[in-house]
Nucleic acid binder design. Structure first.
Lengths: 206, 206
DNA sequence: CACTGGATTGACTAGTCAGTCAACCGCTGG
DNA sequence: CCAGCGGTTGACTGACTAGTCAATCCAGTG
């Protein structure tokens, strides 16, 4: 009531409705009218704010992806933090993004990041930028390994995306403890690896 | 001419054509007539052999996925081979599958494995089976780690799928050396981790 | 040769859905 | 009180395509 109580941002309303609908039925299996209905808005209004159905998805992706890129850059810029801790923070950011808005992350991963024949190809540069920023964090590390940072970044991001996929597909439990555990494990796996338990260091091999 | 030279298996012809068309344009962006044209066959014949467009994709996926599950089981059954070497062999099998038939693997990954809203959900059990078999290999290992085998399997498979995605998206070079290198790196990353170079073992931390 | 039945053809149907557009609504300023 | 205008409406169109089906072909058989 403070000011213009009914001045709802319809554009935002449509975007938020699209997140839910795209997550529920998939971009290809839903109709624009589903989005309009979900937003409680007339069909035509969708086209007042967006030139096409595809552009809704592009907007959702670019909006959120930029937030993530900025977050990674900000984490990387922190002083006196080890690369390992920075990677933990990146993992935490992405996993918390999923926890906070699972529908949006589902849409981004399923419909964009992994859609090689449609939106994935369109946003290749943006997606690649994430890899590069992660590789940058790993590069700053004083510890050098056999695994080049570019591959380590690929594996790191791949592992996180696979975790999210596990939650999306309901293969992993979506509990707070599991989210927290996953943050640790994904970094543990990349650093400690399977070679030995964390405290000790004895390497056994066949 | 030896025997029935013109007795081409049209069903197979259609499946192979579908692989190429689905890979090129994506399942949702291609028409059944594209598949028929690619196979050099009349439109209606596709429906003589398959009840629907979706069933063509299901057939392709199930065919190939079973081959992979069998291969993993066979690798796991080998005697006197360390878990690490078995994982290398699994990675090699999947990567060589991609090298041998990139179109088919692209279709399986892009249209099934990662398609949470359509075929992925349909084949969840089969996909999960792959995780479980990989986890089984890791479980047999005498070395125990902080990272539970179920997560290690997720990360391992996720890393491989991310590699394939890199090749599919043209983010990684598709050379023989790169394929071989990737096989080593994905296992190195899971075992050695980033903690130290392979020969030595000194662990440094911040 | 006549006949049978599976393989093959492609025009057609039935339905879907992205995107358009002409009209309407309600505010603001003259 | 009206004119102008951006926001809003939803019926409609145009294009597309999965799936059907009646007709045709042809290999094998008696």
């Amino acid at each position: 009531m403070a000011a213009k109580p009914n001045a709802v941002d319809k554009r935002r309303l449509i975007l938020d409705a699209a997140i839910r609908v795209f997550a529920r039925r998939g971009f290809h299996h839903c109709r624009v009218s589903d989005v309009a209905d979900e937003a409680g808005v007339a069909y035509g209004l969708v086209y007042h704010y967006f030139p096409s159905k595809e552009e809704i998805l592009n907007t959702l992706f670019l909006e959120r992806w930029q937030v993530m890129l900025d977050a990674i850059a900000e984490i990387d810029a922190r002083q006196g933090v080890s690369a390992r801790d920075k990677l933990y923070q990146v993992a935490a950011f992405i996993i918390d993004s999923y926890r906070h808005d699972p529908d949006l992350m589902k849409v981004i991963i399923v419909e964009v990041t992994r859609a090689a024949n449609s939106f994935g190809a369109l946003h290749l540069e943006k997606i690649r930028e994430a890899y590069e920023r992660i590789a940058g964090i790993i590069d700053d590390d004083s510890i050098k390994s056999d695994v080049p940072s570019e591959f380590a970044a690929l594996f790191f991001y791949g592992a996180i995306e696979q975790l999210l996929t596990g939650w999306i597909f309901d293969v992993l439990p979506r509990t707070d403890e599991e989210f927290e555990r996953a943050k640790d494990l994904v970094v543990d796996a990349l650093y400690g690896g399977l070679q030995a338990a964390r405290p000790g260091s004895a390497a056994v091999s066949g």
